[in-house]
Design a protein around this nucleic acid. Structure first.
Lengths: 151, 151
DNA sequence: GTTAGTGCAAACGTTTTGCACGCTA
DNA sequence: TAGCGTGCAAAACGTTTGCACTAAC
C-alpha cells in the first residue's frame, strides 16, 4: 500500500538511487508519491506550483524522466494521449475507470504470480519477457448506484 | 488469425456496421487490416498515399476514430506518444518489443479464459469490468541471437 | 571546481478543429 | 436532397530541446 512520505524520506530515496537531491527533485518526488493518483506531469506542476512558483514545467518533465530511468517511478497507461506516472513501483496492476479516468492500484500477489507462472510455462519462443502489464478497464460504481442496481 | 481482406470485403464490413461506405473509409479500413502491424495514423496515410493522394491525414484520423467507435478497430498500447490501431478486434493480447516497437498479436484462448475466470471469481467490489488488457513487454530475439546465446 | 540540473522560450510531432465543399444513401 | 463525410489550413496539445545560468556534491 502507498504511504505518504515526508520531505526527508523523499530526499533519502533519491540519494539511495544516487540522484542529486535538488530541492526540485525532492518536491516533485514527494508530490508524485503523496498525490497517489497517477498524476500527469501537468498535474504535478499544478500541485506544487503555489508553493514552488519557480519550478518550471520542463523541469517536471525532465525530472520525471529521470525518476523513470532510476526506477523511482513508472509510466502507466497513457490513454487519451497524456502520460501518467506512478511513484509506487512495486509490481502491481491497475483498474482504469473509463468514466472518471481514475487509475486505481490493484495489488494482488496471487494474480502477479499466476501470470508469471503462466508465461514461464508457455516459454514463448523468440521473445524475452521483461514485464507483464495488465489493465482492467471498466467503471467504478459508487455506492448510490449500487443501491439503485440492487433494488 | 488475421487474414488479408479485399476492397469488397472491407466495404461489406463497413456497411454491416451501418457506416457509409465512402471510398476513403474503405481504403483506410482495408489498409488497417491488411498492414497487420498495428499502424499509426501516419503509417496508414503513407501506405495509401501513392494510390490515393487526395485522402488527407485529417481524414485518416477522423476515420480511425469512427472505426474505434463502431468497434471495427481498437486503440492499442500507445507508448512513445503515438496512437496505434488494431483492425483485428477479436479478444487477444499483445507482445510489445521494446527494441523494435513491434506489436505482436498474442492469441491464446487459454489465457483469455484464465483471466476472465480469475476476475469473475474475485468479484472486485465497486468496479464493473468491461475489458481485460494484458501487454507483455520484452524483446524479440532473432534467430542469430539465439544461436549466439546457446553457444 | 566540476559536473549535472534548472528555467526559459522556442520548436517539435501528433492530433484536433472549423469551415466550405462534395458525395452517399 | 438532406445530412454526413471530406480536405484544407490553422490551431491545440503534450512534450522535448538548446542554451545560458545555477547549484549540488
Amino acid at each position: 500500500m502507498v504511504q505518504k512520505i515526508s520531505f526527508e524520506e523523499a530526499r533519502e530515496r533519491l540519494m539511495k538511487r544516487n540522484l542529486k537531491a535538488t530541492p526540485q527533485r525532492v518536491v516533485i518526488y514527494e508530490a508524485l508519491v503523496n498525490m497517489n493518483n497517477h498524476p500527469t506531469a501537468e498535474m504535478i506542476y499544478e500541485h506544487i506550483h503555489s508553493n514552488n512558483p519557480s519550478i518550471s514545467l520542463a523541469t517536471v518533465y525532465k525530472t520525471l524522466d529521470t525518476f523513470v530511468d532510476s526506477k523511482l517511478a513508472d509510466k502507466v497507461l497513457s490513454d487519451h494521449g497524456v502520460t501518467r506516472y506512478d511513484g509506487y513501483t512495486d509490481t502491481h496492476n491497475h483498474l482504469y475507470c473509463t468514466n472518471t479516468e481514475e487509475l486505481i492500484d490493484y495489488e494482488d500477489e496471487e494474480l502477479v504470480k499466476m501470470l508469471e507462472q503462466y508465461f514461464e510455462s508457455k516459454r514463448i519462443s523468440n521473445f524475452k519477457i521483461h514485464d507483464i502489464r495488465l489493465q482492467v478497464l471498466g467503471e467504478k460504481i459508487d455506492v448510490r448506484q449500487q443501491v439503485e442496481l440492487s433494488k
